[in-house]
């Protein structure tokens, strides 16, 4: 499987990455090579293997349901680009 120009632009858009026009072909090639490697791995029969969800062979540690965080809004909002009335402000999302 290989990726074309449109695939690269779509992936870049989904990840909100700017890709210069001149680079698109190169990315298409490089990503296609990665997929070729995946294709080769697909040739191995893995039907008896449990899919790996995590490289560490462990299970999730759980924490008790206790509130420990205190309000640090002021500290957090000091580093935000824009705030008002306790809200974080972002460019208008809908018209």
């Amino acid at each position: 499987m290989s990726l074309n120009r449109e695939d690269v632009l779509k992936i870049a858009h989904l990840a909100r990455l700017g890709v210069a026009d001149a680079e698109v072909e190169r990315y298409a090639d490089e990503l296609s090579n990665i997929l070729a490697l995946v294709d080769r791995m697909n040739a191995v029969d893995t039907s008896a293997v449990v899919p790996m969800a995590h490289p560490l062979d462990g299970t999730q540690r759980l924490r008790p349901d206790v509130v420990k965080e205190i309000d640090q809004r002021e500290a957090f909002q000091k580093i935000a680009p824009a705030v008002s009335d306790g809200l974080y402000l972002v460019p208008k999302v809908i018209e």
Partner: peptide, 11 residues
């Protein structure tokens, strides 16, 4: 969406 004229507030 409806409080600030040209921004969206996030809580």
């Amino acid at each position: 969406h409806d409080v600030f004229p040209d921004a969206t507030g996030i809580d």
